[in-house]
Computed example of a mutant assay.
Amino acid sequence: MGVSDTNYQIVYRGHHLEYFHPGGWVFFQRPKEAGGGFWLGRTYDFVFMIELPRPVSLREGILYLQQLKYESAS
């Protein structure tokens, strides 16, 4: 369900987020009937804040997170 050596978790269709870290990144997979893809956002107590205004592929979302990490390191 989650990826342990990265800074994000992935929740696939039909599963739920078992635990979260406040401010942690999470990908939620959308139903195929709704077009598929993933919502990318951050989890906080009682809220999931969507980061991007549209669903993304997992690859696109990971590249986005890598870019954020690169920019914050500069």
Rank of each mutant, 00 (worst) to 15 (best):
I50K: 13
G37T: 06
V3S: 13
H21G: 00
L65T: 10
T43W: 03
V3N: 10
M1H: 11
P31Y: 07
D5L: 07
Q9P: 00
L17T: 04
F20A: 13
S57N: 03
Y8H: 13
Q66C: 06
G61L: 04
P22G: 03
F46W: 06
V26K: 01
G61S: 05
Y19I: 04
Y64Q: 05
G24V: 02
I62S: 01
Q29G: 05
P55I: 12
H16F: 12
V3W: 02
P55S: 15
R13C: 04
Y19R: 12
R13N: 05
H21A: 06
E60S: 11
G35M: 10
Y44T: 03
F28W: 02
L40I: 15
V11E: 00
Q29Y: 01
G24K: 08
P31S: 14
G2T: 11
I62H: 00
I50Y: 00
Q9E: 08
F20K: 06
V11D: 01
G35H: 11
G24L: 06
V26A: 15
R30P: 00
G41V: 10
H15I: 00
V3Q: 07
H21T: 14
E71N: 11
R59E: 15
P53A: 15
L52C: 09
G23H: 09
E33K: 15
S74E: 13
L40D: 01
G61P: 04
V26E: 01
R54Y: 09
Y70H: 13
V11H: 00
S74C: 07
R30E: 04
L17H: 03
A73N: 11
P22A: 08
F38M: 09
G14T: 07
Y12A: 06
V47I: 15
E33H: 07
G2I: 13
L68A: 06
M49F: 02
F20P: 00
F38T: 05
A73D: 12
K32H: 03
D5V: 07
W39Q: 07
S4E: 14
G24S: 15
G2Q: 09
Q9F: 02
L40V: 12
Q66R: 14
P22F: 03
P31C: 06
D5I: 04
G36P: 11
I10A: 07
F48W: 10
G41M: 07
G37A: 05
Q29S: 05
P22D: 08
S74I: 08
A73T: 09
V56K: 01
E18F: 06
L52D: 03
M1K: 13
L17S: 10
R13I: 04
S72Y: 08
R42E: 03
K69D: 15
W25I: 10
E60G: 11
L68N: 10
I50S: 05
D5T: 12
R30V: 06
L17D: 02
F20C: 07
D45E: 13
P31K: 15
M1V: 10
H16T: 14
R42M: 09
Q67P: 00
S57D: 06
E33L: 13
Q67A: 14
Q9N: 10
E51V: 06
P53M: 13
S57A: 07
T6C: 11
G36F: 04
